[in-house]
Amino acid sequence: MKNFGKLEILLCLLIIVTLFNTFLGERFSSITLASIIIAATVTYKGFVVIDNFMELKEGNKNLRFLMRLYFIIFPSMIVVSAFY
């Protein structure tokens, strides 16, 4: 276990969140609430990859802002689309 570091923990988290999302979509009765939770988890997954895998957390703040903005705009549209 000595090599089990931050990246490994984040990978496990991302996989768990993916499976949780799928479970929500398949089993949850409230489509609106499921959409809101899924949108939030998509934003979280995006932020994890942007900050830790792309290494923008300590990188260029303008690029980080643009990338994070992308993962705020489109998940927000998921929430909006739940109310169509």
Partner: peptide, 23 residues
């Protein structure tokens, strides 16, 4: 190449719920 590959992963993170999960 690494950041480009991560970008492709990011796009799938958005595509997957839109096409497979959301009802």
């Amino acid at each position: 190449l690494a950041v480009y590959w991560h970008m492709i992963d990011l796009m799938w993170i958005l595509i997957f719920p839109l096409l497979y999960v959301l009802r």
